[in-house]
Amino acid sequence: MKNRKFIVFSLLACAAVVVFAAVFASSYPDGLEQVASKMGFENKMSGINLMGAPMPDYGLALFGAGPFSTLVAGLSGLAAVFLATTASGWAIKRLRRSGNG
């Protein structure tokens, strides 16, 4: 598969994973949450949104809590992660070109 085609195909596959996750992901506590609640230290969690994260718990207040809210948050996150990582990659490459590496 050609590189460009592979990138586009992969990003579509990632979007499909987000759709699947928004509908089917288990809402059980994860390993750490489970340990915290069993050992009785989950109340130490501050839960304060220090940075004012716009989509806490993978949802948008605008759309309430449900698969659609998760879907919109997830797709936004997907785009953000792809752009942030690609930008970091380019930045690292540029640093080398400027003779720093």
Partner: peptide
Amino acid sequence: MGVLAAFIFAAQMFN
């Protein structure tokens, strides 16, 4: 790297 990060992000949403 970008695609890999995107995939890991998506997969981490699926508990």
